[in-house]
Design a protein around this nucleic acid. Structure first.
Length: 480
RNA sequence: CGAGGUGUAGCGCAGUUUGGUAGCGCGUUUGGUUCGGGACCAAAAGGUCGCAGGUUCAAAUCCUGUCACCUCGACCA
């Protein structure tokens, strides 16, 4: 088992440690996940990138269904009057809403917002659909795109239009709504960690960072390889804020008119950016097997020589029948070396090289993308040995990411330590609860509070900023 | 919205200072030889130099305006 020589593969990507930002751009463009669109701030998600999104959708959607949610579709346009109903919500989103002011040749009486999020329209419908406690809960989700007129954009991380899912639910009691909020955050954590291999820290957002109009916002935060935080998913408990603004009432078991308790939760194509920046290396993407559109690629070597094509075809058929996502790279104009680099760039977890030598020995030369090691594996029984290998790769990528993350979380008990910590990763620290301290830290270090994790084991007794008695354990980091 | 940068062949760039036949690499097409880490030979196709105006015998090059995109900040998933 030999690690392949770093010098043998041809370098077209900016090294990570030289310019992480440029590395990211190089990788997503060259691996053909995405391309720039002829519209400002928008991206085109290419087939390979979209296939990853479809994998994420499948994993998410099956869990939504399993927890009793149904999919719906709401219109993309929201009348201004509807958007204005919840004061905090409007204030939060107003600066980044795109408006439709004209239809055909006629100026509209009321301008229409292109949805930045759909709370308002869900609320309008819920108020119409709910009458009795027997109608509750209503647990709906929609897959769609939304538009936010961002000042500066990066593919996947922040674009004017992006794909996402938004769940919106209404409940009879506060307890039930809180339970839903937590449940969906847990679904997100599970997909992030177990499918995408991205370790996350789950916790509650500070008031300063919470969603516009929410009573409480919870998030999962991932650390990228440059030490910056990426908010990878959010789950909100609205309490009755929106219900009161939109008059969503029901007759309770006691025959009284009451407001519903509401939640919403979302994840986006940003998760693809998280995968790239968590696992990627000098050669490009490294995709965890569970999210990889292609898990195993077969590269024939000297396909014209005796038996090679036949063996490749046979292995392809067997693996496909075994339920693996497998591809046979039979492009006949490219050299094996080119294909090796190409599939490494695209992050395919396992490559099988099959040439005359392998055919003779009854093996395939197996390349693991996570470790870049090659070793022979018997052709007989690949359908059994490969799934085990894929599981090992899945586990290895998560372990590598988690080790990296943990190694870059630093306990900080004063501002100097915090300042140093957020240069390389997350600062784990104590906070008095005063937004003034958050503002001061942002001002001085460019770092924001990420969340207050559920495990609140204290690391000191005083606020990292003002020194007053600490209330909460909290993470600070520079964020995407 | 502030600061910077870039627009020349599908992609990446040179040429602009000092105006004078539109260039290079990769890719593409065709034929052949190759194939165990980005193969080689031969031939070929491919351009209103972002757009609009101006100066000039002559503009990719100088002047004025304009548009688009990228990067970094402030705002956000």
């Amino acid at each position: 088992m030999a690690k392949t020589d770093e010098k043998k593969f041809v370098q077209h990507i900016t090294p990570r440690n030289e310019d992480f930002s440029q590395w990211y751009t190089d990788v997503i463009l060259q691996s053909e996940l995405v391309d720039y669109a002829p519209v400002r701030g928008c991206m085109v998600v290419r087939p390979y990138g979209y296939a990853i999104w479809e994998r994420i959708q499948q994993e998410m959607d099956s869990r939504f269904k399993a927890t009793g949610h149904q999919n719906v579709y709401m219109p993309m346009l929201i009348p201004e009057s509807l958007l204005l109903k919840e004061a905090e919500h409007v204030e939060g989103f107003a600066p980044e809403v795109a408006w439709v002011t004209q239809g055909g040749n006629e100026k509209l009486q009321e301008r229409l917002a292109i949805r930045p999020t759909s709370e308002t329209i869900f609320c309008a419908m819920y108020s119409k659909w709910v009458g009795s406690w027997r109608d509750l809960p209503m647990k709906y989700n929609q897959w769609c795109s939304v538009m936010r007129w961002e000042k500066s954009t990066r593919p996947f991380l922040r674009t004017s239009e992006f794909l996402w899912q938004e769940g919106h639910t209404i409940h009879e009691t506060a307890e039930e709504a809180q339970q839903e909020t937590m449940q969906m955050l847990e679904v997100y954590r599970e997909v992030a960690e177990e499918v995408l291999g991205v370790p996350v820290i789950c916790g509650r957002k500070s008031d300063k960072e919470k969603f516009a109009g929410a009573q409480a916002t919870y998030s999962m935060e991932a650390m990228m390889q440059d030490g910056k935080a990426l908010q990878a998913g959010t789950s909100h408990n609205f309490g009755t804020n929106f219900a009161e603004a939109f008059n969503i009432q029901f007759l309770s078991r006691e025959g009284k008119l009451e407001y519903v308790h509401e939640t919403s939760w979302g994840t986006t194509t940003r998760l693809i950016g998280a995968i790239v920046m968590t696992h990627g290396d000098e050669r490009g993407l490294r995709l965890p097997p569970r999210v990889a559109p292609i898990q195993v690629v077969i590269v024939p070597v000297a396909a014209h020589k005796g038996g090679v094509t036949e063996v490749c075809d046979r292995v392809f058929t067997e693996l496909k029948a075994a339920g693996l996502r497998v591809k046979l790279d039979d492009r006949d104009t490219l050299s094996p070396g080119y294909k090796f680099n190409d599939w490494e760039l695209k992050g395919v977890p396992v490559r099988l090289e099959i040439g005359p030598r392998d055919v003779e020995n009854g093996v395939a030369t197996v390349f693991r993308r996570d470790t870049c090691e090659k070793s022979p594996l018997p052709l007989d029984g690949l359908a059994q040995s490969l799934p085990a290998l894929l599981d090992a790769i899945q586990a290895e990528l998560f372990a590598q990411a988690k080790n990296y993350r943990d190694a870059h979380v630093t306990v900080a008990t004063d501002l100097a330590q915090l300042g140093a910590a957020v240069e390389t990763g997350f600062a784990k620290t104590m906070w008095c609860g005063d937004p003034a301290c958050e503002n001061a830290i942002k001002e001085q270090f460019g770092a924001t509070s990420r969340n207050m994790p559920f495990d609140q084991t204290p690391v000191s007794d005083h606020c990292v900023c003002c020194g007053k008695p600490a209330q909460k354990l909290i993470y600070f980091a520079k964020a995407y």
